[in-house]
Amino acid sequence: MSVVDSNLPAQQTFSVMRTVRACVFLFRLTLWRQIASRQTLVNFGLTTLCALIVAAWSHRGHRTAMGFSDYMLLPTFIGFLMPIFAISYGSSTIGGEREDQSLIYLLVTPIPRAAIYLTKAIAVGVLVALWSGGALTLLCWLAGEPGQKLLLVYLPASLLGGLMYASVFLLLGAMFRHGTILSLAYWFFLEVLLLQMPGTVKRITVSYYIHCMLYDAGSSFKLGPRNDADREMFAGISGDSAAIVLVFSILGLMTLGSYAFSKREYTELG
């Protein structure tokens, strides 16, 4: 039994231009659907709460850049807010669509699956970078002079860290049905546990590299471990090395994600 192609009309041939056009639209669609989601509302709420905390802190008498970093930015922004931005968009972009089964409408399109993943990853990256950069700027501005000094120290690490977390969470959301919970388990449990361990095991955590970048860039403000024991325990690497590791890890995760997504069968859809 032979099968022949019907003569497709000219407008139906899916050229490279059409793929690019569809990807650009998918990028806009992803941005718009994520911005209009409940996650954005919750992000607004949490950022407002953080802003209140920093506003309260800024009324202290004695304020230093080191104090602002240790008591506000590290635990509140780096430890909580930035990963939450990454989870909110990273997990829900593919994981959320799987949950409500609307992913099926993307998978029936002629956009190659790898391109769907990459387009979504870029959209998530833009959102997370905007939220991280915006929230950091707001918090530093509210903190006054110490915050303004630290803004440029924190910005590169926040952007790279946010992108790295987003890449991890996007991959988990695409691969596992409960990707959000796995993302939380990784960030809230494994990262915290491993970062406190001695030795080199902490090098598999994202926050280790973020801390290395921050301590390196903020050495003039005496950021980082105070004494030799803490320094030995932390066993940091240079900021540049940490940045290189993060950049290559992001690229690696995006490649891995697009490969895995292009091979993955979503049996629950449809």
Binding site: S37, V42, G45, L46, G95, G96, E99, T180, F188
Partner: peptide, 17 residues
């Protein structure tokens, strides 16, 4: 907030922040 992602964010936000 029944959806998983906003639920997890709100839930953890309450305790941490």
């Amino acid at each position: 907030v029944p959806r998983t992602v906003p639920l997890a964010m709100t839930w953890l936000g309450i305790f941490v922040l």
